[in-house]
Amino acid sequence: MIYKVSYVVLGGRHPGAIVNRDTPPRLGEVVVLGQDRFEVVEVTDLIPPQGDFAYLHVTLRPLKGKKPKGR
């Protein structure tokens, strides 16, 4: 299954993202978008699955601190 995820960031300062993942997002997981880190605070089904694809919405909370260099 490929998980097509709509990332929306609380506060609206980050534009959010739509990406494919091989694993489902989980509450509390730390997600890195570019140089910024976020915590997953909500995961919901956005639309029903189709074929090999699941369609999810994830709400993210910004975490302080940039992604460490070299990772």
């Binding site: 609206g12 919405h57 709400t59």
Partner: peptide, 18 residues
């Protein structure tokens, strides 16, 4: 379906607060 997905993403982004 992709356009619908993007529209839903945008709607949720409005709710999250610009």
């Amino acid at each position: 379906r992709d356009l619908s997905f993007k529209l839903r993403h945008r709607n949720l982004r409005v709710v999250a607060g610009w």
